[in-house]
């Protein structure tokens, strides 16, 4: 028996029950059978070939808040999982997000085809190949879209950065995946002014990807190509408008510039946070002052000239 599951409890449960799936059953009721075991936080087994622990636990609270909350387990997983003990062959089950997401009309706005090609060109895929897949970052049992729906950019930043940090802030995870240790994040970001402030207010992917057709770019760049040109963000045509603020700022930035989008999100970006009216007022005041001083200087020069002429005559 290759599954080294935590079996002691399972024996008492009616996992392989005979109740048939029917349309009137809510997915919660149907999923309950699976979650009786899979909600155990320690449920997992050690994969013999890799030696790594495979986590089989699903947090029901997180699942029912996730984008997949309306699904039944067997919508994605094989129906054969309804029998217990699960057949050995199911360990080979190979799920791929785009099997569902790629061609469905309702998902067209997410540009999954673009996400797929971005991913295949990303440094993760180039270095790790099939060892790296959607599930390496996105836990399908808890994943929620954020940037598109969350009004608070700070929450999106926190959520999205956590995805990167689950590996990049964890030496063991990185080593298990790539077989090497990477330099610490503090070290490689030491050049960045106000580093912690950047980390709290922009997503890793805002500098480590280039915007693509997809709502959230998945084209993760090699670290040498990560954005280091401050002005790309710190200017009126900030690339953050195409990435982090894409969904919030489309409506508000036309005339008023970046200011509304960032005020509402309690963010501030030097060079990008500009107020149209304050700018206009400052140019007018500056122009008036320069004109007044020039006019004054001309009048002084003319009166001095007259004065000299008077004295000479």
């Amino acid at each position: 028996m290759n599954f080294i599951l935590i079996l002691s409890l399972i024996a008492t449960l009616n996992v392989g029950g005979t109740k048939q799936l029917s349309p009137q059953n809510s997915n919660k009721e149907l999923n309950e059978k699976c979650l009786k075991c899979h909600s155990l936080s320690t449920l997992g087994y050690r994969d013999e070939s890799s030696g790594l622990i495979v986590n089989l636990s699903v947090n029901p609270k997180e699942f029912y808040k996730s984008n997949h909350k309306d699904l039944e387990c067997v919508n994605c997983h094989s129906k054969d999982f309804q029998t217990f003990p699960h057949p050995e062959k199911l360990k080979q089950e190979n799920l791929y997000c785009l099997d569902c997401h790629k061609d469905e009309k309702e998902f067209s706005k997410f540009h999954f085809k673009s996400i797929e090609s971005d991913f295949q060109n990303s440094i993760h895929y180039k270095l790790l190949g099939s060892k790296f897949n959607c599930f390496s970052c996105h836990d399908p049992h808890s994943f929620r879209i954020n940037a598109r729906v969350n009004q608070r950019v700070s929450e999106t930043v926190l959520y999205d950065n956590r995805i990167c940090l689950q590996c990049h802030n964890n030496e063991t995870s990185i080593y298990n995946l790539s077989g090497k240790y990477l330099p610490s994040l503090d070290e490689v970001h030491s050049w960045l002014p106000h580093r912690d402030l950047h980390w709290a207010n922009v997503r890793c992917i805002d500098c480590h990807t280039i915007p693509t057709k997809a709502g959230v770019s998945h084209l993760i760049l090699p670290k040498e190509q990560a954005l280091q040109n401050c002005v790309k963000c710190h200017s009126t045509n900030s690339i953050l408008l195409q990435s982090l603020y894409k969904f919030q700022s489309l409506q508000t930035r036309n005339k008023e510039g970046f200011i509304n989008a960032v005020i509402f999100n309690n963010s501030y970006v030097i060079g990008a946070t500009r107020n149209y009216y304050l700018n206009l007022l400052s140019f007018i005041i500056f122009g008036v002052v320069i004109l007044a001083l020039t006019f004054h200087a001309i009048l002084r020069w003319r009166s001095n000239k007259t004065k000299v002429e008077d004295e000479l005559s």
Partner: peptide, 10 residues
């Protein structure tokens, strides 16, 4: 230079 930072005309 900071307030009016520009990609095209730094």
């Amino acid at each position: 230079n900071l307030q009016y930072a520009s990609v095209t005309a730094p």
